[in-house]
Each structure stands twice: as structure tokens, then as C-alpha cells.
Amino acid sequence: MDDRRTGVLFALMATLLLAACEDIAVAPHEANEASITRGKAATQRLGCGACHAIPDIWPQGTTGPALTNFADRGLIAGKLPNRPGELAAYLLDPPATVPGTAMPKIPMTQQDAADIAAFLHHSDAR
């Protein structure tokens, strides 16, 4: 029973966090080349390739799912709608937004998260 209660608590926290994250500035992706370029650099700099196959990023790890054609993905981690704000929030703190997700929290700034979201949603990322 305890499990269920923590589950509810987590869901509540996640909702709150998501609400708080609405503020993350994510410009319409296709419009913001600079953000996409920065996002690609941040993806490289943070070593996301250690677990994911991402177009144009080395290496191409297999621990996490491939992130090709990510703009076409339905749900982030099978839980969140795949929209810019939700994606940035997930990247910034995966376990807080999707409790139980296998993706670890990797230290990054809000700007990094928003830029990476722009990069992953960019149509060339396939």
C-alpha cells in the first residue's frame, strides 16, 4: 500500500514540477538554428552517446533507446507527451519527471536541456 501512496506522491510532484517547467523558454524549434547547434554541442559535451544512438553523435551506445527520428516519438520514456517543454524538463531531471525511469539525472543547465530538446526535435536529427 505504501508503494501506491509514494506513487501518488511522485505523480503529484511530477505534475507540480511539470507545471513549474512550463516556463522553460523553448522557441519553436525549426525557427531557432542557434539553439539546435548549441543543443548538438551539449549532447556531445555531456556524452549522451554513451547510452544512445543519436544521429551525428559519437559514440552510439545501446544502453538506452536510439533517439533517431525523435520528433516522431509519441511518448517520452513511455510516459510524457513528446513536446518541447516536457522533453526539456525530462532531460533536466528524468527520475523526477518520470519516476522509475532508467535514464539517470545528468548535471546540465536549463539552457542545455532546452537546447538539447531543440536538437532532438530538429528534423535533421534522423
Binding site: R45, L46, G47, A50, C51, P59, G61, T63, K105, P107
Partner: peptide, 21 residues
């Protein structure tokens, strides 16, 4: 020298170093 060092790449290395290197 091949990967940045953070808790993500550490986990990725442990699970899957044969793909990375």
C-alpha cells in the same frame, strides 16, 4: 580520453563499454 566523465557516461561505460570502445 574518449568520453566526458559524469554519472551518465560512467553508467553507460559499465553497461556497454564494448560498444563504446
Amino acid at each position: 580520453g574518449i568520453l566526458p566523465n559524469n554519472r551518465g557516461t560512467l553508467a553507460g561505460w559499465i553497461a556497454d563499454s564494448q560498444t563504446l570502445k
